[in-house]
């Protein structure tokens, strides 16, 4: 098999990730065919949804995941996709209604809708999407997994590694669906458009700080990569500096773009 094809095979196959990606893609395509005339799903939304999904699949279910386990800056790129870029693109395309239409009716009506309306689920969702909890959780997870001692064990232990990546993905989806909701507070959004602009700008600051702190550190903070072996020969500090820059700059840029998106929703609502 050619190198590239082999690279695209899963490093550690996850039936859950594969089933979710495939299920979401099929439901979206079916749903897009079924929308009533006048509500057609535009090309931009389709591109947003599928590029987000493809990016997530690529970083989780190809040999990119192997590189992420053995190179700090590739790991930071993986988290940039899991926590920022992938969920951002998916939330931007607002696929909820389309996917709901594309799901088998029974699954939708008998399982998912009652589960979603369950008071426990609604209560947990309200708490997680609270204006204070959501940003703290978003930034807190980045700091948590980048605590050197915790990072060490997350890279050494298979189960903990998966907890880390799934927590970043789920939190990324929660956060960007909350932030990029096109509705105003009056129309049903959990947080108003104005306050969201403030939150997006505020949450960028701690990410810039931790990214800069890592990029400018003069000693090896994450020795687990040396301990377990890097994917190829690179100076550990260079690897760390690149990782710090990935944590710092593209992440902050995503927040700037997010701010512009919310601003455009806000202008439209006026």
């Amino acid at each position: 098999m050619s190198g590239w094809l082999a690279f695209l095979l899963p490093w550690e196959f996850s039936p859950l990730a594969a089933a979710l990606a495939l299920g979401a893609a099929v439901a979206f395509v079916r749903g897009a065919r079924r929308v009533p005339p006048g509500q057609a799903v535009g090309v931009a939304r389709r591109i947003g949804f599928f590029s987000g999904l493809a990016l997530l699949y690529f970083v989780m279910q190809t040999h990119f995941d192997y590189l992420s386990q053995h190179m700090f800056y590739i790991h930071r790129l993986q988290h940039l996709v899991l926590h920022h870029a992938g969920p951002f693109l998916i939330a931007l395309s607002q696929p909820q209604a389309v996917i709901a239409r594309g799901l088998p009716a029974r699954l939708h009506e008998r399982v998912l809708t009652p589960a979603w309306r369950h008071p426990l689920v609604q209560g947990a969702y309200r708490v997680l999407q609270n204006w204070l909890v959501a940003p703290v959780l978003f930034v807190g997870l980045i700091y948590l997994w980048l605590t050197p001692e915790i990072h060490f064990y997350a890279m050494l232990s298979g189960p903990l590694y998966h907890v880390m990546n799934w927590s970043m993905l789920l939190d990324g989806l929660l956060f960007w669906f909350l932030m990029l909701d096109p509705r105003t507070r009056e129309q049903g959004a959990l947080i108003g458009l104005g306050p969201r602009i403030g939150l997006l700008l505020l949450t960028a600051v701690p990410q810039i700080l931790i990214g800069a702190d890592i990029a400018l550190a003069t000693h090896d903070l994450f020795n687990v990569y040396g301990v377990c072996g890097r994917a190829w020969t690179i100076d550990p500090l260079e690897d760390q500096q690149l990782g710090g820059l990935v944590t710092w700059i593209p992440a902050a840029m995503m927040h700037a773009v997010g701010t512009l998106v919310v601003l455009s929703h806000w202008m439209r609502s006026k």
């Binding site: 426990l120 689920v121 209560g123 947990a124 708490v127 997680l128 903990l160 907890v163 927590s167 789920l170």
Partner: peptide, 15 residues
Amino acid sequence: MSRLRRAWLVALALL
């Protein structure tokens, strides 16, 4: 979701 979060926290605390 809340149960999942709790599971993570428990796993982390144990670890």
